[in-house]
């Protein structure tokens, strides 16, 4: 740091941004890796069942597996299409 640096706008260092982005993506990818192998297939089958009744997009079914101590929580999110459309 020289004296000229004191006149510069303080802004977030790029390495800090890099670290934060990495922590998020790596955590997400690890969670996907550690999940059971049947998850993607189950998601596809659920999608097919839902589509028998409502026409939804490919990405309408979101699944999330969280671990909390000994407890595993499977979170299922289905986005239904807008009634009016």
């Amino acid at each position: 740091m020289g004296i000229f640096d004191y006149f510069r706008q303080p802004r977030q260092k790029s390495a800090t941004v890099a670290k934060e982005r990495l922590q998020i993506i790596v955590a997400r990818e690890r969670a996907a890796r550690s999940g059971p192998d049947y998850l993607p297939e189950m998601r596809d089958e659920l999608l097919q069942v839902i589509r028998k009744y409502v026409q939804v997009d490919e990405d309408a079914v979101q699944m999330n597996l969280d671990r909390d101590g000994n407890c595993e929580v499977l979170e299922l999110n289905i986005t239904l299409p807008d009634e009016s459309s």
Binding site: K13, S14, A15, T16, A18, K19, L22, Q23, V26
Partner: peptide, 16 residues
């Protein structure tokens, strides 16, 4: 570059 905050440090990479 690590000193200037432009590059991930040893600690950053180690932590991840």
């Amino acid at each position: 570059r690590v000193d200037r905050g432009e590059m991930l440090s040893i600690e950053d990479v180690g932590e991840i």
